[in-house]
Design a protein around this nucleic acid. Structure first.
Lengths: 234, 234
DNA sequence: AATCTAGGTGTACGGCGTACACCTGTCAAG
DNA sequence: CTTGACAGGTGTACGCCGTACACCTAGATT
């Protein structure tokens, strides 16, 4: 009976189970507490067991990224490039908001995983099939940069430390303390201007989603203008 | 004589020396080999000595970021907002190209250091003093995102692993291997189109600086258009 | 029945950040 | 001239990390 319990104590572990557990752990506890040891414990297994399914921690991270990128919706068909691209990027953004650790993980792994390449490939396809030149498409991809994956690195990123200590954190986004407001008057001007909107608390008065779409549309409009004037070379 | 050698063996260490040594080490050997132990060795000192000058490694990183941000040129005076902003951002970019580890470090430290706040403050000032509303300024800062600090996170970042193994690395940027070109035809189309420019080797045919300025100007032009049409609300 | 093998285990190593007790040279106050 | 405080460098030790490597074991294959 001990043998039975040991024998069928778990669905037997697999690369997929490892990857999804890792994603869940990073979502809940923050990426900085994702260690091979913690992950193994979560799975009721000894740390070295993981190495039968992923080569090492870097490959684990790559796998986690692929899981996340795989959650992004496929492109819309039958619309123009602009709605299709816009919808796709906003879908990517929604996905990444569920996995706040992902942007940093993606950026730090400095080469594209197959899933990211596939995502980029199908994104490029949106443009090419709507008549963009390869040159313009290339520049457009650079212009969008990481926004194409749903994130822009905000200098004040509130989402990054989601998870971690649980919801008990008593600190609201900390409407800048008076001494910094004094030293940096223009930052303060912007912050307080944003704060007296209708949003909940004083410090948080900045609608991330709105800002993201604002910047995205600014780019998309500029791109459309280039295209309509038959963009050629520099 | 041993005593003398020991007594004046080094300029006596200071927060500044620690910080600048750390930056130099990260520049040369890559951020991943910047450990308290390595840094101490570089300075001819025992690891714990560093803690008399920086509270811990996180604070060390913050200090390094401040060193880097401090290298960015101050804003141009007497020009319009657009040349001033453009020049500043390109200066920031130049600085960050000397310190390839910095973008990731900045992004991972999720809160602004005083130097970054000062930089942002004076950048906002450029816009406000040229008549931008606080609202538009706010959105503009979000639209620029990290580009305001001179970097956009490219999905294929070649600059990130500068330093590290020295210049002995025999691998050129690896003009995508045929099997990935087959699986991702649109990526391949873009890449090969870029490759037959006049640039050195086949794989590297993508001018980062041009792409950065292209995207930057796309944004700046869009912003200018908003401003000239007296941008009000959503 | 013998063997192979996929997959979980246990031990151990070197590196990391850093807490904490300690020493030592300098310099000001008595 | 002594004394004692203190700034700053030292040494040891702890707990965490990733992971190499040898081992075991249950089921499938021959």
């Amino acid at each position: 009976m001990v043998e039975q319990a040991e024998t069928l104590r778990r669905t037997p572990l697999s690369r997929d189970r490892v990857l999804h557990s890792a994603v869940a752990l990073a979502d809940q506890a923050g990426i900085e507490s994702l260690s091979m040891r913690n992950l193994a414990q979560e799975l009721g297994v000894v740390p070295m067991a993981l190495y039968k399914h992923v080569a090492n921690k870097d490959e684990l991270l790559d796998g986690m990224i692929d899981v996340v990128v795989g959650e992004i919706d496929p492109p819309l068909a039958g619309t123009g490039w602009q709605p299709a691209l816009r919808a796709r990027i906003l879908s990517a953004r929604q996905v990444l908001r569920r996995h706040p650790w992902a942007p940093l993980a993606i950026e730090s792994r400095n080469m594209a995983t197959p899933a990211i390449l596939a995502y980029i490939d199908s994104t490029i396809e949106i443009l090419l099939t709507d008549g963009f030149s390869t040159d313009l498409t290339h520049h457009v991809m650079h212009a969008l940069g990481s926004r194409v994956l749903g994130f822009s690195q905000e200098l004040f990123d509130t989402a990054r430390d989601a998870g971690r200590t649980g919801a008990a954190d008593p600190i609201p986004p900390a409407a800048l303390p008076p001494e910094v407001a004094a030293r940096f008057p223009h930052v303060a001007a912007i912050a307080t201007a944003a704060a007296h909107d209708d949003t909940t608390v004083v410090g948080a008065g900045c609608d991330d989603q709105f800002e993201f779409e604002f910047a995205l549309d600014l780019l998309l409009d500029g791109i459309d203008r280039l295209r309509q004037q038959g963009w050629t070379s520099t």
